[in-house]
């Protein structure tokens, strides 16, 4: 049909499924067979497929090794009020995420940022066969299409890299450990403790809030719980320490200093202007009492 002996067609079909075996012996149509195709072709079934399966098995083993060596990450349950979490899309959307951060692609120009560049690029990619209609197939003979693709690839890699570097930088700046790492670390520590204890899980003593009915609790509720959580256990994912048991860590003088002037470059805000000296005194006296029960 489409190939072989009378081939003045533009396209040479190789391995065409339209090749039919002759219906009856002695029919006058000359059955085209695979020997008409150029080169040393090989039957798909079983020869080539068996080789493919072998390669597939090797790939599968490699893949399984990866999944076992590097478990799928899982952080802590979604908490929409968690302001400290650094949002990141999945890695394959990073290029778009990064691109839309640039001033000429965001704010008033966001339409350009979305439709103007990625929109046009994806539309061009979708319609590539209708834009690049020349007969030439070799990439070095179609410089426009190839250079546009190379340019896009370069931008993709560049934007992804910049976005990821920026994320790492932010992590370092805020001293944050990604949640799934933190969680894994905790699980390992837990497991090691259990092993050391002869396989029996260790019960962590819960540090209770000392003097819950103290009037200082009102100051705490008004100022501290937003970050240190309503149960005062802090938020380890965001690097916010617990207030329960804080009396074991800091003396009253240190607490006065921390509350008044803040800590960690503004991570713990300074309350020197928001609270009166009396209130700070009342608060820190109460905080200094927060010790583990003996």
């Amino acid at each position: 049909m489409a190939h072989g002996h009378k081939s003045n067609e533009k396209v040479i079909y190789v391995g065409d499924s339209r090749v039919r075996k002759p219906k009856a012996v002695g029919s006058d149509t000359i059955p085209p067979d695979y020997t008409a195709f150029p080169g040393k072709s090989e039957a798909f079934i079983p020869n080539f497929l068996l080789k493919e399966w072998m390669v597939g098995c090797v790939a599968l083993v490699g893949f399984l090794v990866l999944t076992i060596a590097e478990p799928a990450p899982l952080g802590y349950p979604a908490d929409p009020t968690n302001a400290a979490f650094i949002p990141m899309p999945d890695w394959y959307f990073l290029f778009l995420y990064q691109f839309l951060k640039y001033p000429y692609a965001s704010g008033n120009y966001v339409a350009f940022g979305i439709l103007g560049v990625p929109g046009v690029a994806f539309a061009a990619l979708l319609l590539a066969p209708f834009l690049d209609t020349g007969k030439e197939r070799r990439f070095y003979r179609r410089p426009i299409a190839s250079s546009l693709m190379v340019l896009s690839l370069f931008s993709l890699f560049y934007l992804t890299k910049v976005s990821w570097d920026h994320y790492e930088h932010e992590l370092a700046l805020t001293n944050t450990i990604p949640e799934h790492h933190l969680r894994e670390e905790k699980a390992r520590e837990e497991w090691e403790k259990t092993q050391a204890n002869g396989g029996v899980p260790v019960e962590e003593a819960v540090v209770p809030i000392v003097d819950k009915d103290d009037p200082a609790m009102e100051i705490v509720k008004a100022n501290c719980v937003a970050c240190h959580a309503t149960d005062l256990k802090g938020n380890e994912g965001a690097g916010v320490p617990a207030l329960t048991g804080v009396g074991d860590v800091h003396s009253k003088e240190e607490l006065v200093e921390i509350v008044t002037n803040g800590l960690g470059g503004g991570k713990m805000p300074a309350f020197g202007e928001r609270l009166s000296a009396e209130e700070i005194d009342q608060l820190t006296t109460w905080l200094a009492k927060q010790k583990k029960a003996e």
Binding site: Y76, P89, L115
Partner: peptide, 25 residues
């Protein structure tokens, strides 16, 4: 699929994605 585990990473990634979707004219 990224949202389904419903951890912080999933939630905030989807939030970003929604912001991008919303910005389409």
């Amino acid at each position: 699929g990224y949202l389904l585990p419903w951890d912080n990473k999933a939630y905030f990634a989807t939030k970003v994605g929604m912001q991008i979707a919303e910005a389409v004219p």
